[in-house]
């Protein structure tokens, strides 16, 4: 079942002099099994938007329908919503608190009221899902390296076995290798059929992984479409304080030099094939 948002608005601290509008009339639909990316400048409302998806913020205006659950209805069980929709915050390693990795990953399943052996099984599965060895189970999460901590924290969300996984800047602050590992893990979970919603600043990550891109700007949904569609509108993106993926920039540079590659190219592999096609056709600079 998809995520359906219709005419959602949100105001922080309404009625006080500090009131600020974070979302204005946002409508979108994320299909099952889709890899969606939400991009936008800092303060564009993307985090506020995704926090609506698992009921951390109840919609005050508009509707959010997740897996058939109406989130604006106060009778909807938030626990059920959170079981189905996992949300990994930015720098999730700062939420670790237990004595051992095992207990920390087991925190979510325990809150769901699962029996002990089920919790143990889920912890092991989650650990395998984030590619960490079982030796770590009894270690303190605070003794691990930065990348390992982050994977344990993500494992803590995966252990709830959500069908929709939301990740807010999952690669922020990681070194290139840690980044690569996390991204390929996310790709793997998507291939297994999970719906993924990734909030990101990195246009390269988005262009590589996402099937659909939602661009937020000043609380509004400014653009929506496939990466090829979105990244073929560079001027609008730049005016919103966003950037282009490296491959799209390269395409623009090549176009200036007279190599007219098709618009909408945003991945390096595409540049390669397009250049080959260009030369085979006998085009010249």
């Amino acid at each position: 079942m998809p995520i359906e948002v219709s005419h959602l608005s949100h105001v922080y601290m309404p009625g006080s002099p500090f009131s600020a509008s974070a979302l204005e009339d946002v409508s979108l639909r994320i299909e099952d099994g889709e890899f969606a990316a939400v991009i936008g400048h800092t303060g564009s409302g993307k985090s506020t938007l995704v926090q609506h998806f698992n009921g951390l913020i109840r919609p005050s205006q508009g509707k959010v329908l997740v897996n058939g659950l109406e989130l604006s209805d106060p009778k909807t069980s938030l626990k059920e919503v959170r079981r189905q929709v996992g949300l990994v915050f930015q720098y999730p390693e700062y939420q670790l608190f237990e004595e051992s990795v095992e207990l920390d990953i087991g925190f979510g399943p325990k809150n769901l009221g699962l029996p002990k052996d089920e919790i143990a099984a889920r912890v092991r599965q989650a650990l395998a899902d984030v590619h960490l060895p079982e030796e770590l189970l009894q270690r303190s999460p605070f003794d691990l390296s930065g990348g390992q901590k982050r994977r344990v924290a993500i494992g803590g969300v995966l252990a709830m076995e959500p069908s929709i996984l939301i990740l807010d800047e999952p690669t922020a602050g990681l070194d290139p290798r840690g980044r690569e590992e996390i991204l390929s893990l996310i790709q793997g979970w998507h291939r297994k059929g999970r719906t993924i919603v990734m909030v990101s600043h990195s246009m390269d990550d988005v262009s590589r992984l996402a099937e659909r891109v939602y661009v937020m700007s000043q609380g509004r949904l400014a653009m929506e479409g496939s990466p090829a569609e979105v990244f073929s509108r560079p001027d609008e993106l730049l005016s919103m304080g966003l950037d282009l993926p490296a491959a799209a920039k390269l395409r623009a540079e090549l176009a200036k030099k007279g190599f007219a590659l098709p618009k909408g190219i945003h991945r390096m592999e595409e540049i390669e094939t397009a250049l080959l096609a260009f030369f085979l056709k006998g085009g010249a600079a």
């Binding site: 926090q51 951390l56 915050f89 700062y94 939420q95 670790l96 925190f107 809150n111």
Partner: peptide, 29 residues
Amino acid sequence: MKAQAARGADFDTGNLLQRAKAMVPLLVP
């Protein structure tokens, strides 16, 4: 609080002891 709530933590219900215990995942981090 939100991160732990996303993992099913419940800060608002239960008796005093349960609520005090629910604070641990908040206070340690």
